[in-house]
Design a protein around this nucleic acid. Structure first.
Length: 268
DNA sequence: GTTGAGCGTT
């Protein structure tokens, strides 16, 4: 029962995959099995999990043995509330056996239909549920699956990003240690990573200035504050300041500013 | 411990 996803894809020769969306992050294959098994023979259930956290990504793939059963499950389970969430069941399209799916749809939809595939669900369409507003910009950006893979959740993203950054750093550091290998040094390996990371920014056309500002960001702005703490700025400015050390310690403006030592005592 | 558009593993 719980052998789902234990040893990868068992056999996708004669199976039809259904994509189950909008499931809770706690829903497991075992939870979906009884639901889907009721409407047909479920060969396998796979729920993509995060590589790092191992948590469910919020959707699952249910493989049916027969197309008609799968179709039935789609009509029956699509929109069903599971664990308090309304799940969305539909035929998988971008899977490894997408071709098969297409044939399936066309087959059980109408053999003589020459047009597309998915459009062949006049009956299931009857249930005009409110799941239209869900899709929007993804219609044309389906090819960017790699992109969306990185950032599917805003809040979650920050966690992943942080983790990735740390990992990346470590990785690079190790690579550098191996300076013996010119391969990576050449730029091929490193460049790839760099490019990848940069690409992650998504906005390549963005102003390069931002890039300069990013690393510039100081963890402690207090230090950068020239008005209050000492004046490193002046020191670095140039040799105009002969010796800040001799001027500041005590002979500094402090004396000029507070002619009365008493004030200083009281102040602090 | 969080989140919510979307398409997958050995």
């Amino acid at each position: 029962m719980s052998h789902f996803g234990r040893s990868g894809p068992p056999d996708i020769t004669d199976t039809y995959s259904l994509l189950v969306l909008n499931i809770t992050f706690r829903t497991t294959a075992d939870d979906l099995f009884p639901l889907f098994d009721k409407y047909g023979k479920v060969v396998d259930i796979f729920i993509p999990k995060d590589r790092r956290t191992g948590d469910s990504r919020g959707f699952a793939f249910v493989r049916y043995k027969y197309a008609d059963e799968a179709q039935k499950a789609v009509e029956r389970l699509d929109g069903r509330v599971v664990d308090g969430r309304e799940i969305t069941v539909q035929f998988a399209k971008y899977g490894p056996n997408a071709e098969r799916i297409r044939k399936t749809s066309a087959c059980l939809a109408s053999t003589r239909h020459k047009g597309r595939i998915i459009e062949s669900f006049p009956r299931s369409r009857y249930r005009s549920r409110s799941r239209s507003p869900r899709k929007r910009h993804r219609d044309d950006n389906y090819k960017d699956r790699d992109y969306r893979r990185r950032s599917r959740s805003r809040s979650y993203d920050r966690h992943e990003r942080d983790r990735y950054r740390g990992k990346d750093k470590d990785y690079r550091r190790r690579s550098r240690s191996r300076s013996a290998s010119p391969d990576y040094s050449k730029g091929r390996g490193r460049g790839r990573y760099d490019d990848d990371r940069r690409s992650s920014s998504r906005s390549m056309s963005a102003s390069p200035a931002r890039r300069s500002v990013s690393p510039r960001k100081s963890p402690s702005p207090r230090k950068a504050s020239p008005p209050r703490g000492g004046s490193p700025d002046r020191h670095s400015r140039d040799g105009r300041t002969p010796s800040p050390r001799s001027v500041s310690p005590r002979g500094r403006p402090a004396e000029s500013r507070s002619p009365s030592p008493r004030n200083s005592d009281v102040d602090e």
